[in-house]
Design a protein around this nucleic acid. Structure first.
Length: 145
DNA sequence: GCCACCGGTGGC
DNA sequence: GCCACCGGTGGC
């Protein structure tokens, strides 16, 4: 059947991430479009908070519009409650700018695989459905040519 | 048991 | 009233 389902690369995200639109075909909400994302290793994401938890500090989603899959600077103003653990990057901090948000989303700036470790910040909510803590994981891959 | 899918609602 | 988010479950 021709259920509209499309899964494409998402340009606003690092290489390998895909965005999918699924149109609901029945029920009261028939016609509504659900948006999902898939990490390079195939994990499915249903919401921006879920994405943010997974990406941690590796990518700043502040201007990322989950629904459209694009960067929308208007989100900066209307931002919801931010965790207190935000770092003020605008001061004269000397950092390796390429590794610290905000990260340019257009280019593949990671020259090597990036591994993110879950740190012991905010307590994760009690979701033990999967029985184990997430292991360190590779979030993106280098483009090969 | 998993997961794709629609329902329900909290927060705006 | 809308809609982002996520709960719950039917169907496999």
């Amino acid at each position: 059947m021709s259920i509209e389902k499309k899964k494409y690369e998402c340009s606003a995200l690092p290489k390998g991430w895909q965005r999918e639109e699924v149109i609901r075909k029945s029920g009261l909400s028939a016609g509504k479009v659900d948006v999902y994302y898939y990490s390079p290793n195939g994990k499915k994401f249903r919401s921006k908070p879920q994405l943010a938890r997974y990406l941690g500090d590796a990518l700043d989603l502040a201007t990322f519009d989950f629904r459209s899959g694009k960067i929308n600077s208007l989100l900066l103003r209307k931002n919801k409650k931010q965790r207190g653990t935000q770092f003020d990057y605008s001061r004269g901090v000397r950092n390796d700018a390429s590794l610290v948000p905000p990260i340019r989303q257009t280019a593949s700036i990671f020259k090597q695989p990036v591994t993110v470790y879950k740190t012991q910040e905010g307590k994760v909510k009690t979701d033990f459905k999967h029985g184990q803590q997430e292991k360190p994981k590779q979030l993106f891959w280098e483009k090969r040519d």
